[in-house]
Design a protein around this nucleic acid. Structure first.
Length: 301
DNA sequence: ACCCAGGCGGGCG
DNA sequence: CGCCCGCATGGG
């Protein structure tokens, strides 16, 4: 059993889960969240729900406890967002083809991909271009603070929702730039208009990866890499293999004998090598590359 | 000061 | 097609 509710329905037991690795892998930059290391808890807004979650972990297993709201609806949201139905044992077996991924799994066991709102994911990864994680998170936070609506949390927590495309469409260029978006402001404006008037992200078929990617690339400011991120983290295409600068460098070093290769070659390799779970391999290699040096010391923050 | 960050669109050959 | 360039902004 990968997961199970206890009899009271108040906690959720999960095999192989790490909240800290999942949050710090910078992959859930696609949702507005406060994570507290000391208490291993996280607070975030999801639609109109306020989620305040604490993870009690021993070894690689976790007991998730919702600190506010205890209806099935909240647990269903957590289960979906953190991909708790994924059988990590099985996925690890599939992607541990060599020592590179094996080592990354050893270091970050329990790190999961997340499944996020398609529009949120689109905005976050438009912002991600030519940018760094810390600043992306700051800008996303600014957007939520400025344009999000307060969610009723039934207690002292203050959480805002992520503004939908209609809401963001109303923002002026100078308002968007004031949040730190820089030259990406025009993409955000254009994407907001397009996704409100021309393309309903919630009606795209998440199953057909190639078609989905092509549709996403019709959005101004969404190229191949960003489309892969949206396909993976917004629609759950686990075969997608976003190839950013970190992954490109890592792949060239580990699998192409240090030679420069094009993203197309990397995609082809990943498809043949990892197949349906290439996205998970990508996530482990990405996080490992970003946080580990050769000598095993930690990189920056 | 210089370099880099989860890239993209546009212009040119 | 492929290649090359500029692009906002803040941190190391």
């Amino acid at each position: 059993m990968n997961k199970a509710y206890d009899a009271s329905g108040k906690v959720l037991d999960v095999n192989i889960f790490s909240l800290v690795h999942t949050f710090e892998s910078a992959q859930p930059l696609t949702f507005y969240a406060d994570y507290l290391r000391e208490s291993n808890s996280i607070t975030y807004g999801s639609g109109n729900l306020c989620i305040n979650l604490k993870s009690h972990e021993s070894e690689y297993n976790a007991r998730l406890e919702l600190l506010n709201g205890s209806s099935k609806r909240y647990y269903a949201e957590v289960e979906k967002r953190f991909r708790l139905a994924d059988d990590m044992g099985r996925i690890y077996k599939k992607i541990s083809i060599d020592s590179h991924v094996e080592k990354a799994i050893e270091r970050y066991k329990g790190m999961r991909l997340t499944l996020n709102d398609p529009w949120e994911t689109t905005v976050c990864f438009i912002i991600s271009q030519f940018n760094n994680v810390k600043r992306i998170r700051l800008i996303v936070r600014n957007i939520v603070e400025r344009f999000g609506d307060e969610i009723d949390c039934n207690d002292s927590l203050s959480v805002k929702s992520f503004p939908d495309s209609e809401k963001l469409m109303e923002a002026t260029d100078s308002e968007l730039r004031a949040l730190g978006t820089g030259f990406r402001s025009k993409y955000l404006k254009s994407a907001a208009e397009f996704c409100t008037n021309n393309m309903d992200l919630y009606k795209l078929n998440p199953k057909n990866y190639e078609k989905l990617k092509a549709k996403l690339m019709e959005i101004d400011g969404v190229g191949e890499k960003v489309a892969d991120c949206i396909a993976l983290m917004g629609y759950g295409n686990l075969n997608a293999f976003p190839t950013d600068v970190w992954i490109k460098r890592t792949m060239e070093k580990l699998y192409f004998d240090g030679k420069k290769v094009k993203p197309r070659d990397i995609h082809e390799f990943a498809k043949d090598y990892w197949g349906a779970y290439a996205g998970y391999a990508q996530q482990y290699l990405f996080h490992s590359a970003r946080t580990y040096r050769e000598n095993g010391t930690l990189r920056k923050k």
